[in-house]
Design a binder for these strands. Sequence first.
DNA 1: TTTTGAGTTGTTCGA
DNA 2: GTCGAACAACTCAAA
Length: 473
Amino acid sequence: MDEHFRISIVWFRRDLRLHDNPSLWNAVQESNDVIPIYIRDNPNSPPFTISPGKRQLIEKCLWALDQQLDACGTRLVILSGEPTDLFTMIKNILPFEAIYYQEQVEPNEIALETRVSSWARDNGVRMIPSDGLTVHRMREVFKPSGAPYTVFSPYYRAWSGLHISQPLPSPHNISSPVNLAKIMENDIPTPINASVNEAGEMAALNTMDVFFEKKLEKYPSHRDHPGIEGTSRLSAFLNLGAVSPRVVAWRCLKEQNSAMGGAISPAAVFLRQIAWRDFYYSILRHFPHVLSSDFKERRNTIPWENDQTLIEAWRRGETGYPIVDAGMRQLLQEGWMHNRVRMITASFLTKSLFTDWRVGEKHFMNHLTDGDIACNNGGWQWAASTGTDAQPWFRIFNPTLQGEKFDADGTYVKRYLPELNNIPSSLIHKPWVIPHDDQMKYGVILGRTFPLPIVDLTLQRARYLNMMRPSEK
DNA sequence: TTTTGAGTTGTTCGA
DNA sequence: GTCGAACAACTCAAA
């Protein structure tokens, strides 16, 4: 028979939602009283700093979560400090018997789980882990041999074959012993100048609805065009768990079933991206060394040059290559960059500027609101050709061609580089070819109002290929 | 057990 | 302009 507890803690982590939240749902089912708590990250503990945009979004989600818990009859307790100390303090006030929590994949989070579990064992408290971070449980997607996949395609085949279980509903009534938020040194969430429908999980679910209703049909063709608002914009919400990945996958299946036959449905194209997220979580869980070193040891060491002047130009968006600069400035302005442009800027930093991928990984984490340790690392290692299922080392993006292919009329570039507004689209991705007289006409002076290219791409490409060629080892 | 073919996102070159 | 080949090496799964 299931266990039953008098008082349980629900330890909210990256599951800032009521819907499809196994820890919350099970705690409510299996306990008389539930105390929902959130513990802020120790600023020194995560391997990356939390970007300002992400910090803000966390506050919004905490505020919204508290509002929604309030409607269920309880309040969120927000604390800062060492979790084991905090649990000790709480237990002195309320003798709770269990901690329900969502299992994480980052090494520092796993270390924390180990620490808390050991504390729990010593204090007679049950630790009850649950899934919900990914669509499918990590242990369900292994090779027949029992080893984790390291290549996406076979992973995806196995992943696709699994049944997606029906998402859990949100609890309506949550009974709490006392208002702990009033007793503890509670860190009240910053009030948000918005309604609860515009923050946290309601905002996440609305974003998801808009995507499925308005954008899904065109997603396969639009998703690669940064000038078009064609992607889901769910990444930051998924990262904090304001929306459940399983709910997103469930919705994809629903759309797929109602779609016409024929080619791969738009819902399947999108679902594949959700599978990439699961895949990179699995990689980080099973190969934590990816955070500090290459997933695969290359035959020849990559000769990173890490030229600080070039790196700074890349960070500021002043490389002279419009699509790279537009992307880097979008990142600084919005804390977000279109995925196609993430690939272009990453390829540029690593393969055209000879910079260690970790430099780019860190810069992205410093600025992305959706910064996700596993996905960001996977993406950077892929771009640098050091990762799992990496692209071939000789595949180097050409920002001019990429721009012409995916931002043909320059809509995206001009949005972030208004100084290029009057340049005709045939020249927008290679302004350096514009003769001096025409520069005046187009209102741009190269080297003054927009930089000249900081490197010669043809030359850098040849150098890179030459250095990396296996026969050169 | 061994072999074989396929594998997210590209570019350049020469016919 | 278009098209195919070349640019490696390795994992995985099916035959």
